[in-house]
Design a protein around this nucleic acid. Sequence first.
DNA 1: AGCACGCCGACT
DNA 2: GTCGGCGTGCTC
Length: 803
Amino acid sequence: MKIASVIVDVPTTQTDRPFDYAIPDVWQGFIQRGMRVIVPFGNRQVQGFVLDLKNHSEFSNLKELIEPMDLVPVLNDELLHLGDFLAKTTLCMKISAYQVMLPPALKAKYDKYLILGNDTELQQLPFELQLLFDKKERVLWKDAVEVMSASYLYREARNGMFEVIYEVKNKGNKKKITYYRPAFSEQEFKKRLESVTLGNKQAQIIQFFLAYFQPHTVASIEENVTGARNSLKSLVEKGFLQKEEHEQYRDPYQDRQFVRTTALALTEEQQQVISPILKSIEEVNNDVFLLHGVTGSGKTEVYLQSIDEVIKKGKEAIVLVPEISLTPQMVNRFKGRFGNKVAVLHSGLSIGEKYDEWRKIQRKEVQVVVGARSAIFAPFENLGIIIIDEEHETSYKQEDSPRYHARDVAIERGNYHQCPIILGSATPSLESFSRAKKGVYTLLTMAKRMNQSALPKVEIVDMREELRTGNRSMFSQALLEKMRDRIEKKEQIVLFLNKRGYSSFVMCRDCGLVVQCPHCEVSLTYHKVSNQLKCHYCGYESYAPKTCPECQSEHIRFFGTGTQKVEEEIGKILPEARIIRMDVDTTSRKGAHEKLLTAFQEGKADILLGTQMIAKGLDFPNITLVGVLTADTMLHIPDFRASEKTFQLLTQVSGRAGRHQLPGEVVIQTYTPEHYSVQLAKEHDFIQFYQQEMSIRRVGQYPPYYYLALINVSHENLQLVVKVMDKITTFIRHNLSNQARVLGPAASPIARINNRYRYQCLIKYKKEPNLIPVIQKAIAHFHEEQLKKGMTITVDLNPFTMM
DNA sequence: AGCACGCCGACT
DNA sequence: GTCGGCGTGCTC
């Protein structure tokens, strides 16, 4: 095999195909499919993935590839194939599909350098450049353009004064740890000592080695002989010690003790649910199970015992959880059961830590991976099960290219490995539940909580009524009384503030002006800490105005209830309450999240106050009251899934209460108590909610009855955006069947971000085999505009947000 | 993406 | 006449 077919790291439609390279003799037999290589591309070097090896190419004068970047392939055949699947089903570049499957540490970085031409003397250069080149062979391009214009540099490069070179940075990411070991046996060591005289420090080090005759790290030598580091080198030179480097994994969980657990006895329901799963594992079937289990019904134990069975068969398991750093309890459960067989992958890890966890998987040192969305690409080769917990979570859909959904990838991989998939949730997505009803998935139900505990009693409080009776605080009378009661009883409270879609905006009470971002069509968010207004879309910041910028009125107010404000108010009315506040501000530091939760678990606070991040996975026995301060803010966002999201959230939050011996109670405060998603969450009635919501989706022609595709065009010039979007929409409308509904063009819900206008076209369809080629054709038409005018066109198949 | 090639206006 | 504007097309 003399030729490698390579996908290059140039993410454009024109280069989204394999390029052939000759394999130089030195690398013959070494280069394999799935390896990363450095190849010449045009006049620069880029990274690429070897797709294939072959002996013939249609292209006659091939360049040689430069060198491999890996010792062993980073992508196996299955993942190479999966990349193709991603590119086809999400309309992304193949290179982006492959990059997303690997830990970010393996993504190439490029450096552009300037080196002197062959005949160039340093003195010929302008003074500023002479300084840069001083004693250096090469100068970073970005340093050079600081002192000389790019056009000058390019011109002189053309004249031969410089050469411009590119280099793929292959970062040595492996963490090395240095050991010193005795160079010979103990007797030999002593014998040799007699024939030399050593300095004081060196003698001390030798004594230390004689006392503990084994390899030592520099740190441990230093502990015993201070200043030893300076003498180690000469001991190596004299032949007493050998220096060696061991690769070491950074283990983010290394200094933590995990209490080992064994399988718990299953409840009757759990047994009923697990037996078809075990059967599927046994028979190597590619079944998809939808495990619908109420909060606290013990889904995790079902996962654990299924995985255990898979491991016994010598296979591997992937467990996806929504943003795992948010649920350290979950990690503990897996680490506790499977110990060092588990790798953990989530966004809280550093790039290096992610890389290390990934390598444990690649080297088959672990059998289980627990992680967020991208863990679905774990390079296992013998998958026995894939579990997606909280299956309905929107975070399983990646919101930028490649816009894949982990569930779809899971099903594709399950099909390849012929292994079962479990989708678990207390509130399944309508898509999954309807598939289960149709028999595409196998529905498994757990309707009871473990520990004989009942689902919590839910009380809905109409906040309009509170207002009428003169209560203007954010706590209803009912909630306040219950909070007092729990604090007295030394039981714990979780207060949930639903902030999404309800940022704390600034409004003038006189003229009604809402302060907006000058670059985006969104209202600015007030941040109390810095007294600033910030735009969450483009990062614009300004100081909070004291008077209305429009009418100069002083009645300008900050609307919306932030966690800080709630904390302040509790401090006023319940001064004895100890509060832990969890939001972006208090959990941004690494590990802060877990610390706060641990403190709460240990009873160091009465109230846990937070946003989204406390809705899931909390399982503390002492929580007996859950308060939802504003249940309906999410209902008003322009999204057909608003009701579904509200129902899911209320159910999840309620599920935090009374999971163990003590009974739980939930208070939901709302301005729309009659809404079915609020009412049915109170009744814990998912089935009823499903039916009601489905009929609305049917009428509105929304998923799961229809599939969606969203095309978005953005550019600074509004006219251009409208024109292009209009042409695309018309083209698509004419080329799909009349079953399809093509809506638009219309301004996006956020009509402008970063001064770029945004228009969109929404396609609703049931069956359109030509959809993807038609969209591709429509977009291809506007290639030039994209290239020259900086217009962006994006396509999101099965979008989760319409923003 | 990044660059070379190439064809038209304003400068020595 | 030439420098440089950016429109066009190519990269194995």
